[in-house]
Design a protein around this nucleic acid. Structure first.
Length: 559
RNA sequence: AGCGGUAUCGUUCAACGGUAGGACACAGGAUUUUGAUUCCUGGAAUAUAGGUUCGAUUCCUAUUACCGCCGCCA
């Protein structure tokens, strides 16, 4: 199995050891991804889902998708559906139909009764406030509940009444009887069942009590035979409780699942927290959970990220226990890398400047043939119309160029990509001095593909034919927040106002062959995704996924 | 001394007592009809102080810094 393994990590090392010590055969390894269906999946979940999925795949074991749906007050079936389709898109396919923690509620209740019978759980009548006060603090032990020593018989009866719905929410809870003086707060008689009188979105059953995560999760894992239960770092303190639950239930004393914690993903200049994302959606600052500026899976997909790029990215960032912040440039590298050979490369002018080629015959249009992707000839060729009037990028012309500017300026010659050399002969300015049109001459001998070697030019720029260009809408996307201005207290005010700039661009006619959701490179401008959701009939909209790398940035133009 | 974690190039992850390595980023060069890509090349790290050992990023001790924990959330 080492052949297919690219990166080592501490979790793989643990599993290797378990196999070496004959605790498990490789094919017995079972992992799971257990999202709570209370929001959309984001790039942080991508890391966790892929980690579990890839481990199961590597060992030939099993990978479960399980909804951790123990708190129906926050959950919804819509989220279940979005999670299933996002994972499907990602290429993370469970070995089985999705599982639901809620399916195990009847067993969980039986196990709770087992704890009660063993004198390891009791019904507490204290209020939420009393429980909180008596829990103690980080430095002081808690106080035992006056109800702590109820007999198993009494607890059994009360718990039965809780199940039957004879108490109101908050009136009673079931607690594990562990140690109110434990230095680990999680072991100070944690609540394992609370009263919640509502119908469950999955089971459709109206339970009156619902189990808490700390009690339910180890059981869910154990019931499914999960061998390695991977979760994030903040659950480290919960592991003793996870182990306690399984150690005290007869069914699971043998080879219980082991909880292993790893650091969650953090990306710079990116909002990852579900709470923040939800706020942006609810306040209408973004266009929904799938806004292309969001790091949700659906947002990334709409932006144009590919599953392959996300997979490679996750492989490369690795797994560890140290909190770290990954540079977004790494993510961007992997989309570019994935897209470079499989996308068409088209001339699209984002910010047009009119150019007249004075010595080109009036009324003539020729069709120039060009490779659709120079680095991947299999993508074939297509034709570009060329005539006397074209548009180039405003930023490709400067009246007074700085040093090392090798695009167009008065007297300079450049290559029009796939066409001819042109030389700027005249500049037309408006009353404010702004350049509104330039005039060039072209040299017929320099036609692309003719093998002309007479002289060289430093610059090649893209262009579109003025008569045949197709207008398209383009969203230029930027980070919603910048780390250096991010204010978590007041974060709505630190949102980047220019995170989405929409322009009308002019594309060469070949753009018509681009299909919804197809990714394409606009030469020198970056990779773009045909947004099937925002596009209208006859008005395609493209989202810029990422810019191309650039060794040179034009200086800021003063207006 | 509450408890539990973490500390390796700018960033991120390896190295499991034996030459500190990869990826991203960066710099230089070559090629180039994208200032892209591709191809070379390069700089760049074991938090601090002790100890064990022939040998320590790795084991031990102390120090420092950072993260998490006082929901009837997960």
């Amino acid at each position: 199995m080492d052949e297919t393994r690219k990166n080592s990590n501490f979790i793989l090392n643990i599993i290797d050891k378990d196999i070496e010590e004959k605790k498990y055969k490789p094919e017995e390894i079972i992992t799971r991804f257990p999202p709570e269906p209370n929001g959309y999946l984001h790039i942080g979940h991508v890391k966790a889902a892929l980690l579990n999925y890839n481990i199961a795949k590597l060992f030939g074991g099993k990978f479960n998708l399980r909804f951790d749906d123990t708190n129906p007050s926050k959950e919804d079936k819509d989220y279940v559906d979005s999670i299933i389709s996002d994972l499907d898109w990602l290429g993370v396919s469970p070995s089985d139909k999705p599982y639901y923690g809620s399916s195990y509620f009847p067993q969980m209740i039986e196990y709770a009764k087992e704890l009660i019978n063993k004198g390891l759980a009791y019904v507490d009548d204290q209020s939420t406030e009393e429980i909180r006060e008596n829990r103690g603090t980080l430095k002081e032990p808690g106080k035992e509940s006056p109800y702590r020593d109820r007999t198993p018989e009494e607890n059994r009866q009360l718990f039965e009444k809780m199940i039957e719905g004879e108490f109101k929410p908050g009136e009673k809870v079931l607690r594990a009887k562990i140690d109110m003086a434990s230095p680990n707060m999680n072991l100070r008689d944690p609540v394992i069942y609370r009263i919640l009188d509502m119908k469950h979105h999955h089971t459709k059953e109206n339970y009156h009590i619902y189990p808490m995560y700390d009690y339910a999760h180890p059981l869910e894992d154990a019931i499914e035979g999960v061998t390695h239960s991977l979760c994030t770092l903040e659950f480290e303190d919960h592991r003793p409780l996870y182990d306690w639950v399984l150690a005290n239930i007869d069914d699971f004393k043998e080879k219980p699942p082991v909880q292993i914690e790893f650091a969650k993903l953090d990306l710079n200049n990116t909002i990852i927290g579900k709470r923040f994302i939800k706020q942006l959606v609810d306040e209408g600052i973004v266009d929904g959970w799938d806004d292309p500026r969001l790091a949700t899976i659906s947002g990334l997909r709409r932006r144009g990220y590919t599953p392959e790029a996300l997979q490679k990215f996750c492989e490369e960032i690795g797994i560890s226990k140290s909190n770290s912040t990954v540079d977004k440039q790494m993510l961007e590298h992997f989309v570019r890398d994935d897209l470079k050979d499989k996308t068409k490369r088209l001339n699209v002018v984002l910010n047009p400047l009119k150019v007249e080629i004075t010595n080109y015959p009036e009324g003539q249009t020729e069709l120039l043939e060009i490779e659709t992707n120079m680095d991947n000839p299999e993508m074939g060729k297509h034709k570009m119309p060329f005539s006397k009037n074209i548009y180039i990028e405003k930023s490709d012309f400067m009246l007074e160029p700085p040093k090392k500017f090798f695009r167009l300026f008065p007297g300079n010659e450049v290559r029009l990509r796939g066409a001819y050399f042109v030389k700027c002969t005249d500049v037309i300015q408006d009353e404010n001095g702004e350049v509104i049109e330039i005039k060039c001459t072209y040299d017929p001998e320099t036609k692309s593909g003719s093998g002309f070697k007479g002289r060289k030019v430093k610059g090649t720029i893209h262009w579109v034919d003025a008569n045949e260009a197709i207008p398209i809408k383009v969203n230029l996307l930027d980070d919603l927040i910048k780390d250096d201005t991010f204010d978590s207290e007041n974060f709505l005010n630190s949102i980047n106002k220019n995170s989405k700039i929409t322009v009308t661009a002019l594309a060469e006619p070949e753009i018509k062959t681009v299909k919804p959701d197809e990714k394409v490179q606009f030469i020198r401008n970056g990779y773009f995704n045909y947004d099937s959701k925002e596009s209208q009939e006859n008005e395609p909209v493209f989202n810029r996924i990422v810019e191309l790398k650039s060794g040179w940035r034009p200086p800021k133009k003063e207006k």
